[in-house]
C-alpha cells in the first residue's frame, strides 16, 4: 500500500477548464517520486491537487489507505503532509529559528529534538538561526523552507521545484539532502525542471503531458528509455 496516492485526478482551478485529465501520482514511504514534463504539462497542478489546493471533479487522494479527498490543505498538514511552495516559501522578516517554530505551529509537544534534527541536516541554518530568513541566499532559503516543512514530522514531503533559481552546486547539495530525508522513511514527492538530475535520484518518475500520465516507471528506466530521452530530456 502506497503512502500517498492521487488516483485518476481530474480537475482545474476554481470553475475554470480542467487541467488534469485522469492523472495518477503516488509515492511509497522512504522513496522519492519525481514529476517531470514540458512547461504547462500540469506538473505543479498535479502536486497541488494532491495537496487539496484545487477542486477535483473526479478521482481520489488517499494517505495510507485513508481517503482525504475532501480535506482542506490545512487539514492535510495534520494528516502528515507537508508542502514546500516554489516561491514565497519562507517568512522573510522572521529569523531562521522562528521560521522553524512556525513550521511546528500545530504541534504542542517539545519541538527541540526535531529542530536539532533539521540543524543536523542543514548545518548552515544552525549558524544563521538568529538571522532573518530574508537575508539568506537562495539556496539557504530553500533549506529553511524544507526545514520548516519537516518540523511537523510529516510522513509525506512535497517539494515544488526546490532547485528553481539555484546554482548547479547548490542543486546537487539539495538533492543529496532530499535523499537523506527519504532514508529516514519520509515519502518525497517532487516537481522538477531539472528532469535529468531529478530522475537520477528518483525511485519513481512520472512524465506528464497536458495533464495526462505519458510515461510512468522507475527513474532509472525512464532515463534509459530512448523515447523519453529524445522527447523530454534533450537527447
Amino acid at each position: 500500500m502506497s503512502a500517498l496516492i492521487g488516483q485518476d485526478m481530474t480537475g482545474g482551478y476554481g470553475t475554470g477548464a480542467d487541467i488534469l485529465h485522469g492523472c495518477t501520482i503516488g509515492v511509497e514511504a522512504g522513496q522519492i517520486a519525481v514529476i517531470v514534463g514540458p512547461n504547462g504539462a500540469g506538473k505543479s497542478t498535479a502536486m497541488k491537487a494532491v495537496f487539496g489546493m484545487l477542486h477535483l471533479r473526479e478521482g481520489t487522494v488517499t494517505i495510507n489507505g485513508k481517503d482525504i479527498t475532501g480535506l482542506s490543505p490545512q487539514a492535510r498538514v495534520r494528516e502528515g503532509m507537508a508542502f514546500v511552495p516554489q516561491t514565497n516559501n519562507v517568512f522573510t522578516s522572521m529569523s531562521v529559528e522562528e521560521n522553524l517554530e512556525m513550521g511546528a505551529f500545530i504541534r504542542d509537544d517539545d519541538i527541540s529534538r526535531t529542530m536539532s534534527q533539521v540543524f543536523e541536516l542543514f548545518p548552515v541554518l544552525k549558524e544563521k538561526r538568529r538571522q532573518p530568513a530574508g537575508q539568506l541566499s537562495g539556496g539557504q532559503r530553500q533549506q529553511v523552507a524544507v526545514g520548516r516543512a519537516l518540523m511537523t514530522k510529516p510522513q509525506i514531503l512535497m517539494l515544488d521545484e526546490p532547485t528553481a533559481g539555484v546554482s548547479p552546486i547548490v542543486m546537487n547539495e539539495l538533492f543529496d539532502r532530499v535523499i537523506e530525508i527519504a532514508r529516514t522513511g519520509i515519502a518525497i514527492l517532487m516537481v522538477e525542471q531539472n528532469a535529468k538530475h531529478a530522475l537520477a535520484i528518483a525511485d519513481k518518475g512520472y512524465v506528464l503531458v497536458q495533464g495526462r500520465n505519458r510515461y510512468t516507471d522507475t527513474g532509472e528506466a525512464l532515463l534509459a528509455d530512448p523515447e523519453v530521452r529524445r522527447a523530454f530530456l534533450g537527447g
Binding site: 490545512q74 498538514v77 511552495p85 514565497n88 516559501n89 517568512f91 522573510t92 512556525m102 505551529f105 500545530i106
Partner: peptide, 12 residues
C-alpha cells in the same frame, strides 16, 4: 502578516 499563505499552510 509576513506571508499569509505560508502561515495558513503551517496551520495558523
Amino acid at each position: 502578516s509576513d506571508n499569509e499563505d505560508l502561515a495558513l499552510l503551517s496551520g495558523v
